[in-house]
Simulated scan of single mutants.
Amino acid sequence: MEHTQTYDGPTDPGADRLVGSDRVLAVLKELARYPEGVGLEELTRAIGSPKPTVHRALGALRRAGLADQDGPGRYLLGDEFLRIAFAHHEARPDHVRVRPFLEALAARFGETAHYAVLDGREVVYRAKVDPPSGAVRLTSTVGGRNPAHTTAVGKLLLARELTTLADVEAWIGADPLIRLTPNSRCTAAELHAELTLTRERGYGVDDQENETGIHCLALPVYLTSPSTPSGAVSVSALAYRSPLAALVDALDDIRALLPS
């Protein structure tokens, strides 16, 4: 979940046929992958559209302030995009409310704490707090995504929605689940069994299913409703340093630090 890798989502086989606003949005998303900027040639190859059309998309983004060009002529996200993104993020009540609890978890366990919500087949990280000092810090980012079926937060939130094997099969549909590690649960039967266990115990785990060497424990948080979770909070740890069993043993301590 909540780990050192970044999941970029499934590759769109129709990317080379993007037109109009779809192409502009594809260029915008691709720019976000290059914080140091990217040249037109490289961007054109990544998008898979003709250079003139990518250049027109960049022109539209630049006029809106959503893209910019540095001295060497490389393109990058514009200041207006960053202003909008940060203003929106800071205004989210769940982000504001949950951060003190993440700080308490990170300080208590010396590990990274995340808050995430479910978005279709993925989880989106709304907030993250690294430990104050002395520990390896994960490279997960606010706004980043990972597959729901390989993450502790994702499986915890899916467990409420997918209560039968038929539910899981319908959710998977025709698109196979990605296997990120040998531990990933990728068949309908495997995921159904895992979600059933998650519902029974009331917490989710990622036992090196999203990335080898990292595991997580997640609990639901109820920021907007007393009965429906607004999202989930997790503690993510390096396996050699904090065994998963140790996190499970500390469940009561974790619950005590969460919003009531």
Rank of each mutant, 00 (worst) to 15 (best):
R126P: 00
E211Y: 05
A32E: 15
H88R: 14
P93W: 02
R56G: 06
S236T: 11
D253C: 02
A127C: 09
L58D: 10
A104Q: 05
A237H: 06
E122W: 01
R62T: 10
A245F: 08
L223P: 08
R241S: 13
T112W: 02
T196W: 00
L102R: 01
F109A: 03
T4Y: 05
Y7V: 13
T151Q: 05
P243E: 14
Y7C: 12
L25M: 07
Y7N: 10
P132W: 02
E111I: 13
E80M: 04
H215I: 12
T6N: 11
A113G: 12
A218F: 02
W171E: 08
C216L: 09
F86Y: 07
N146W: 02
P50I: 09
L251R: 10
E209V: 07
S236E: 09
P50V: 10
P50D: 11
L258M: 09
E80Q: 12
G213I: 08
S21D: 14
L28E: 15
A67G: 07
A107M: 05
L43S: 15
N146C: 09
T151L: 11
E200Q: 14
T44K: 01
L251S: 12
L43T: 14
D206F: 00
S184C: 09
R83E: 15
C216G: 06
A64G: 10
R23N: 08
A148K: 03
S236D: 04
V142Y: 01
D70K: 06
P35S: 08
V124N: 04
A166Y: 00
D175P: 05
A46L: 14
E41N: 06
H89S: 06
L238V: 13
L162K: 03
T198D: 07
R33K: 13
P259D: 02
T224Q: 05
E30F: 00
H89C: 09
A256R: 03
P226L: 01
G143D: 10
T150Y: 00
K29W: 15
N183K: 12
L25S: 09
N146A: 06
G65E: 14
D167Y: 00
R255Y: 02
Q208G: 07
L165D: 06
L195P: 11
S236M: 04
D12C: 00
A174V: 15
L66I: 13
A232M: 06
S133C: 06
V221W: 13
V129W: 07
